[in-house]
């Protein structure tokens, strides 16, 4: 083989997969499994469930191996399949109760900031990540679908079966709260985390 040393291309892997070669499935699995877990975990923050859901993506890939019709990259295809599975999981578990309500409206007032004074970029990122983790469940979900799955407001609304208006409310809430973190990031401490928890209530 002329390309020894290179990993087999996706097309080669897919061809082998279509012929029922299980080692091809294993290679695809090794390449993408952990990454897919990371993506799914943002939607369903439960490790065991994520493992289940992502494993099921590969079972499905195997099931459909003979008639796969992938127009994007294999990675993008698997990512989409995993995300859809995670969203379906939420629906069937009825864990999302995105009731249309205006309880988000009581957000805190923001004060003028001066970002240039922010010194430690590292801690800002860490603070933001922590903040996303602490967002109320529905808020974090909507934000994650927008930020990381690049879904539009309309798409998210359709996927979660709720109105665009509610999506926009949740997005607004998330953006405001992230800004708060940014404003406080200079002296981010357990006290601020406590304050955030206090504001946002317990996680759903």
């Amino acid at each position: 083989m002329t390309n020894s040393g290179k990993s087999p291309t996706e097309q080669t892997l897919l061809t082998a997969l279509a012929q029922g070669d299980e080692s091809a499935l294993r290679q695809i699995f090794d390449r993408y499994y952990n990454g897919l877990l990371g993506a799914v975990f943002r939607i369903v923050p439960d490790e065991d469930t994520c493992q289940d859901l992502v494993q099921e993506v590969f079972v499905e890939l195997w099931r459909k191996r003979a008639d796969l019709d992938i127009h994007t990259s294999l990675q993008a295809y698997l990512r989409r399949a995993a995300v859809n599975r995670a969203l379906n999981h939420l629906k069937t578990q009825r864990r999302i109760q995105l009731q249309e309500s205006d309880d988000w409206a009581t957000t805190v007032d923001t004060s003028p900031s001066d970002i240039r004074q922010l010194e430690k970029q590292e801690s800002l990122e860490a603070a933001l990540h922590k903040a996303i983790e602490l967002l109320p469940e529905k808020c974090r979900l909507v934000f994650s679908l927008s930020r990381f799955e690049h879904m539009s407001h309309r798409e998210i609304a359709a996927q979660l079966d709720i109105s665009v208006k509610t999506i926009e409310n949740q997005i607004t809430k998330a953006m405001k709260l992230l800004r708060e973190v940014l404003l406080h990031s200079r002296d981010l401490s357990p006290v601020v985390i406590w304050i955030l928890n206090y504001w946002w209530g317990h996680r759903g």
Partner: peptide
Amino acid sequence: LAWEKSEGYEKTFDT
């Protein structure tokens, strides 16, 4: 800034 800096939010798995 908040939007850009939130990009790397992903739990790393080493299963």
